[in-house]
Design a protein around this nucleic acid. Structure first.
Length: 206
DNA sequence: CGTTGGATCTTCT
DNA sequence: GAAGATCCAACGC
């Protein structure tokens, strides 16, 4: 069974901070072959180009790597961080407005056994899909997933609405991670975390 | 426990 | 040549 997919209109707002906040509690699902894995989004960060000095698209910088940031709302943007980790972002606003939201953590729902294998972890724990690089491994996301329309029912990666809304007072805002050197952009409260994440307690699977 | 450094790609200096 | 939207194994207490 699958939930209702978020429509493209959801991503067209020109305020990526609001979108980042609204994405908390939504469901990120990947379909790789016959395998489905999914989780509740519990942590996001907004990148508000061109003024945001922490964004790859600061000052409308345009390179082969970040070209997808200028694409249509609801497209995925994947890139390699520190030469090692694949990070998964969602592009928002109109074409040529390179706002983005980075997905930093999910709470596993479906395909937990598959996620454990992909991560080579043998028990369910927060590290399974918490942290932007770990999340991509757990969900099987790689650089081939750059530019996927996340609102399309036929895509391998989709964002779906949840059966319940997360109350706003359970979501806190903090400065973003790893952007200390980005001048005044560094202190902006563009990171959102669901306070009640970690529904499970590291139980043994095998 | 907390801290350190290696991995190794893209971009800018 | 250096730093970055990171992670984790290897250390030292």
């Amino acid at each position: 069974m699958s939930n209702k997919i978020l429509p493209i209109e959801f991503y067209k707002s020109h305020n990526p901070v609001e979108i980042a906040q609204s994405l908390i509690g939504k469901i990120l699902t990947t379909y790789k072959g016959t395998v489905q894995t999914s989780g509740i989004i519990t942590e996001t960060e907004a990148y508000w180009a061109p003024d945001d000095m922490a964004s790859h698209a600061r000052n409308y910088t345009r390179t082969p790597r970040n070209e997808m940031m200028y694409a249509e709302a609801g497209s995925s943007y994947t890139y390699i961080c520190y030469g090692v980790h694949t990070l998964f972002n969602i592009i928002t606003a109109d074409v040529d407005i390179p706002h983005a939201v980075l997905i930093r953590a999910i709470e596993p729902i479906q395909g937990i056994d598959t996620m454990l294998k992909r991560r080579d972890i043998h028990k369910l724990c927060p590290a399974l899909s918490s942290g932007p690089g770990s999340l991509s491994v757990a969900l099987g996301i790689n650089m081939a997933d750059n530019g996927i329309p996340l609102y399309d029912p036929n895509s391998q990666i989709r964002i779906e609405v949840n059966n319940f809304e997360i109350p706003k007072n359970e979501v806190i805002a903090t400065p973003r991670i790893g952007v200390e050197s980005s001048g005044k952009s560094a202190s902006l409260p563009y990171r959102f975390i669901w306070k009640k994440k970690q529904l499970y307690q590291c139980k043994i699977i095998f």
